[in-house]
Design a binder for these strands. Structure first.
Lengths: 168, 168
DNA sequence: CGCTAGTTGAGACTGAGTCGCAATCGCATT
DNA sequence: AATGCGATTGCGACTCAGTCTCAACTAGCG
């Protein structure tokens, strides 16, 4: 496993507050950074367990907290329950398109939206610390499989919906 | 309690699928529409209980599902855990500014952001069904009470954060 | 009024995440 | 290499929000 730039950030983060880079933390780090994907906590647990690394659920959550706090991992509420975690490349920010059919998560970044957000904040005297912007729907791959009838059903069944879209 | 336009929508919704407008459903409806606010499910339970209306937790959740499904109530993931519910005026959509200090929820609507969202969807061949857009931070009222030092701490402690903002 | 599908409440259950604590570990010092 | 000690771990019990089951009940049509 090659050393990452992120690993040194993590190391520094731990050091700064007198924490240790234990083998469990290292293993979790490696697993997260082995590929760029979105993870759930329990997924990581299973993943590590099947690799014969023993690690407890509590430690997974605790380490994830550290990684999020150090800024190299992001925590997102994506599905119905629980969080997902994702690598964060420093300085890069993105939002999410989430497919209700296949669960695929597509990342997008639209600078103009970011600017408008800042304007909204200014208007309300609001000091933004973070934001979360997600669109749920049907991705390109799933669209052919979904008739318009089903899409309408999915729409009215969508539990996370915030917006009433025109029925058309 | 005056009859609402929403009540007749709800009535129609129930009728259409052979469901009944029971006293529990009516009570919950009244409570929700008594004022325009964001509610948590358990809050409603307590609220109704103190009004001597007995209603079970299961029924609260079941009825909330119906209201959401009928489109007159919105379900939002706002805090750390669980959902919040809010009245939805037909055709009106809004997003949220959420204060980390006082929990206040400010609604905003920015047509230009909505348009840009549509453009993003088009670009990815994504069929949007719903979206959720929230900014977390410190509201106007709380800003005076929060030093910039504390704000920085809040920022790095923010558990819902998705975005690494410049440290400045 | 009676029928029947729909509805309710109580409480058991689930899943995600947290907590307390005794045993253990990492690592700076000797 | 041994010591010391704060940090860390795993376990299992716990919490919290939400769901499910099921027997008893009810709205509302005929």
């Amino acid at each position: 496993m090659k050393p990452h730039r992120e690993l040194s950030i993590f190391r520094k983060y731990l050091e700064k507050r007198g924490l240790k880079l234990t083998s469990e933390r290292q293993a979790l780090f490696d697993e997260l950074f082995a590929r760029h994907e979105h993870f759930e906590a329990d997924e990581l647990l299973v993943r590590l367990r099947t690799k014969h690394k023993k690690i407890s659920r509590a430690t997974i959550y605790r380490t994830l907290d550290l990684l999020v706090d150090s800024g190299i991992v992001g925590r997102v509420r994506i599905g119905e329950s629980g969080y997902r975690y994702e690598r964060l490349r420093a300085g890069e920010h993105h939002d999410h398109l989430i497919c209700n059919e296949c669960g695929r998560v597509i990342e997008f970044f639209e600078p103009a939206i970011e600017n408008l957000q800042d304007q909204v904040c200014e208007k309300y005297g609001f000091l933004a610390i973070s934001h979360s912007h997600q669109l749920r729907g049907i991705c390109r791959q799933c669209r052919p499989r979904v008739t318009s009838r089903e899409a309408t059903a999915a729409r009215s069944a969508d539990p996370g919906r915030l917006r009433i879209l025109p029925t058309a």
